[in-house]
Amino acid sequence: MKLGMLTACLPDLSLEQIAAWAGDAGYEALEVAAWPRTGGRDFEAAHLPIGEFNGQVADETKALFERHRLELSALAYYENNLHPDPRRRAEIHAHLKAVIDAAAALDVPYVGTFIGRDWNRSVADNLAEGEKVFPEIVEYAGERGVSVIIENCVMEGWHPDGYPGNLAYSPELWEWMFSLGLYLNWDPSHLTWIGIDPVKTIASYADRIVHAQAKDMEIQSGAIDRYGFFGKAVRRPDPWDVGWWRYRVPGRGQVDWNAVVDALYENGFTGTLSVEHEDPVWSGTEEKVKTGLEIAHRTLRPLIVA
């Protein structure tokens, strides 16, 4: 197992700047953000020139990682592949395929994305649509030696009422997506807030957990008694603000990282555990974000065999 980080938390830095800092900070791998641009929403970034990607860019990127003794664990483009607007969906699929092409050129085994959801339709209708959409994407990736990995983020902010906007949030839905040839970028923070014990999910799905993200979450005392499980309803100007929990860096929330890492090892996980930093306490400036990443490193490094 290697300790890595997702680059999206530092959208204003270049990949070269991030690689230099991450290597010095003791990280071993980067999960590289590969959106077409930075700034569409929080925690997305464009750290590879996907639109202009060519052999020279691939060679320069490989040399950069070699220079800083880092692995490139995955490319990250987490978007709604079932978007209700046909034009927007086509744009997402086209960029996803371009990211897959870049991963193949870089010898990167995984590209991460979301299932997503058409929030105007039922879950059953979305699953039927997903069964039409994803086999072609999986085949496209497979022909290039790449596997598509899906993060189990709920993406409640994508739904007008705060319901799941990414239909990959539970083991029941994982089994459905595995049948389509998809793999899991496993994240315990999302499981924790929806009431699923993350450690108990590892053994059953170990053969499909090929990459993992290290994000923590904190339940804010007493707040759920006002809002209920689904969160704020009357006043919710920020669709992502549920009101009773928030993301934290590993070591500042309620995930039992000792148990998580132990279970990953016990069940044969040999991939990258990649810190995904979305902690509001350690955000706002480059210095604070890097401090949050250092906290995460201090939490996880003693648990992972060098």
Rank of each mutant, 00 (worst) to 15 (best):
G4S: 02
L6F: 12
A8K: 11
D12R: 14
S14Q: 07
W21F: 08
D24M: 11
A25I: 01
E31G: 07
A33S: 15
R37I: 12
G39V: 08
D42I: 11
E44F: 06
A45L: 05
A46K: 08
I50F: 02
G51C: 07
G51E: 02
G55P: 00
V57R: 10
V57S: 09
T61Y: 01
L64I: 04
L64T: 05
F65H: 02
R69D: 09
L72R: 03
S73N: 01
S73Y: 00
A74Q: 00
Y78T: 12
E79C: 10
E79H: 12
N80W: 06
N80G: 01
H83C: 02
H83Y: 06
D85F: 00
E91Q: 15
H95Y: 06
I100R: 03
A105E: 14
L106V: 06
D107V: 08
V108W: 03
P109T: 10
T113N: 04
G116N: 02
R117G: 05
D125Y: 10
D125Q: 15
L127F: 10
G130Y: 02
G130R: 02
E131T: 08
E131Q: 13
I137F: 09
V138Q: 04
E143F: 11
V146S: 03
S147P: 09
V148S: 06
N152E: 05
N152M: 03
N152F: 01
C153D: 09
W158T: 04
W158N: 10
H159E: 00
P164D: 03
G165C: 02
G165S: 01
E172P: 08
E175L: 08
G181M: 01
L184E: 05
N185T: 11
D187H: 07
D187F: 06
I196D: 09
A203Q: 10
Y205D: 01
Y205S: 04
Y205L: 02
R208E: 04
I209F: 07
I209W: 09
A212K: 03
Q213Y: 05
A214Y: 03
D216R: 02
D216W: 04
M217D: 12
M217C: 15
M217H: 13
E218M: 14
I219E: 15
I219H: 15
I224P: 03
R226D: 13
G228L: 10
V234S: 12
P239V: 06
D241W: 12
D241V: 11
G243A: 05
D256M: 02
A259L: 08
A259N: 09
V260R: 11
D262N: 12
A263Y: 06
A263S: 09
L264S: 02
Y265N: 13
E266G: 05
E266Y: 07
V275M: 01
V281A: 14
V281R: 13
K288L: 15
V289S: 01
T291F: 11
G292K: 04
L293I: 05
I295A: 04
R301Y: 06
L303K: 01
V305T: 14
A306L: 13
A306M: 13
